[in-house]
């Protein structure tokens, strides 16, 4: 019997090699300058958090057959609600919960549009984005400030390990939560009844239907749950990464997350690798610029993540296989 792990290694040989190369590179850099290496890696992880959360959100949706290009809007609305709740109550926990619930509500709205109203899913996602841009713009008032933000918690012992410690074990709580969630989603997707049914609904909804699985219910449930992850990403942005809210602060991360999802072949762990790669690219260019090593206008540096997204899409496009039923509304006979 083929174990999932063996299959995983076989299918990801190229990435494994890339990972080894990366480890060697990091070791080399660490030898040269430990502090900067740690800083860049820690920054990579921070940059990757909203991307992987967004990618997981997109992935759960697409695995159940729903394209979600509204992740950007879901993040933005959640970031805004987290911000407001924090301003009003001063509680970071309540603010996070509010952001997650907002994400769920936005996810439900997408499910409602694509399952019940059968709006083209790409247009549905666009509606979500525009509503988020509009509402956050309308209700945002300049001058409000958050009351505090999540602070790093060093995990005893683990945080003392060189490189790994400062990068992975001296983080604020939402980062830890995200790292756990990646594995939770992976486990649920491949090893549980829910995961099997989710994948069936995304690949062949009619087959699932003929076996008594409620396709509509699965899609509603999954897109709503996935929305919570985008919501968490939004909360992360205001409560942990930035500590405040600005109009359009998501800055395209929701869309980049989709590219991360595609690059990660709709697989949570691979998507995490892709997210880290994007995070690393961003962190590296920031660092280079900071050190004055690059005499390039900042706008060109700013383009990098977007260029990288296009290159990645063009590179993997046509060679990946999305869930077969993605994008098609399921109509019961």
């Amino acid at each position: 019997m083929k174990t999932p792990w063996r299959t995983f290694f076989r299918q990801n040989r190229g990435r494994m090699i890339a990972a080894v190369a990366l480890v060697l590179f990091v070791a080399y850099a660490y030898n040269r300058n430990a502090q900067i290496t740690e800083a860049v890696l820690a920054s990579s992880l921070r940059q990757s958090i909203p991307l992987i959360l967004g990618a997981l959100c997109g992935l759960i949706g697409e695995r159940s057959g729903i394209i979600n290009i509204g992740i950007e809007g879901q993040m933005l609305m959640a970031a805004f609600v987290s911000f407001l709740v924090n301003v009003k109550t001063g509680s970071l926990i309540l603010a996070t919960i509010a952001g997650v619930l907002m994400g769920a509500l936005m996810g439900w709205a997408l499910a409602f549009m694509s399952v019940t109203l059968r709006i083209d899913q790409i247009i549905g996602g666009t509606v979500l984005n525009m509503i988020a841009f509009g509402l956050t713009g309308y209700f945002y008032q300049v001058g409000l400030a958050t009351k505090g933000k999540f602070q790093p918690i060093a995990i005893p012992l683990l945080s003392k390990i060189p490189i790994i410690g400062p990068v992975f074990f001296q983080n604020p709580p939402l980062t830890y939560l995200t790292l756990v969630l990646i594995f939770v989603v992976h486990f649920f997707l491949y090893y549980t009844r829910w995961g099997l049914r989710t994948r069936a609904v995304g690949e062949h909804p009619r087959a699932a239907d003929t076996l008594g699985i409620d396709v509509y219910r699965m899609r509603y449930m999954n897109v709503t749950l996935a929305g919570m992850l985008a919501g968490l990403a939004g909360a992360y942005l205001t409560l942990e990464a930035v500590g405040s809210f600005e109009r359009m602060m998501t800055n395209g991360r929701g869309f980049v997350a989709l590219a991360v999802m595609i690059f990660g072949k709709w697989d949570p762990l691979s998507a995490w690798g892709a997210a880290l790669l994007f995070g690393f690219a961003t962190a590296l260019q920031t660092q280079l610029q900071f050190m004055g090593a690059l005499q390039i206008p900042h706008q060109f540096i700013g383009m990098l993540p977007y260029l990288l997204t296009i290159i990645v899409l063009a590179g993997v496009g046509g060679r990946t296989r999305p869930p077969a039923a993605v994008g098609q509304p399921y109509v019961k006979e």
Binding site: I69, I122, N251, G252, F255, V256, L258, A259, P297, Q299, F300, G302, M303, Y306, L307, T309, I310, L313, A314, G315, G317, G318
Partner: peptide
Amino acid sequence: TGAHEVITTIMLNYIAINLTDY
């Protein structure tokens, strides 16, 4: 390459913003 125009055009929007700003 099969890259979906929805994502590439959005990415190009951000690139255009940076380019024109430059």
